[in-house]
């Protein structure tokens, strides 16, 4: 799979990572290289094979419906780059 710069920029936007023109150009090559290398999986016959959905052969544990957490706004806000009155503050979202 050969990716072009437009694709690199689209993927970077999806991943919310800013890329400079320089970066886009070099990433184009690197990503294409990696994607081409992984394409060897096409050689493998996977007809009737299920994708791996669990690594461990156990059931999903369920917990009781009891409030055991929360009420720790101090811990929640402690590392925030910007906060006010216990809200996280971010530059405004354009709806």
């Amino acid at each position: 799979m050969e990716v072009d710069e437009t694709t690199v920029r689209r993927i970077a936007r999806l991943a919310r990572i800013e890329v400079t023109d320089e970066e886009a150009a070099s990433l184009k090559g690197e990503l294409s290289g990696i994607l081409q290398w992984v394409e060897q999986l096409e050689e493998v016959n996977t007809d009737n094979v299920e994708p791996m959905t669990r690594v461990v052969p156990i059931a999903l544990k369920q917990r009781d419906d009891v409030v055991t957490d929360g009420e720790k706004v101090e811990d929640v806000i402690a590392n925030a780059p910007m906060s006010e009155d216990n809200f996280y503050v971010v530059p405004t979202v354009i709806e």
Binding site: R63, V66, V67, T68, D69, G70, E71, K72, V73, D75, V76, I77, D85, N86, F87, Y88
Partner: peptide
């Protein structure tokens, strides 16, 4: 997560680290 679903509540008070 084990935090409460109760309506209202001070900002970020019904919030666990999860």
């Amino acid at each position: 997560s084990g935090a409460s679903t109760e309506f209202g509540g001070a900002p970020n008070s019904h919030v666990s680290l999860v």
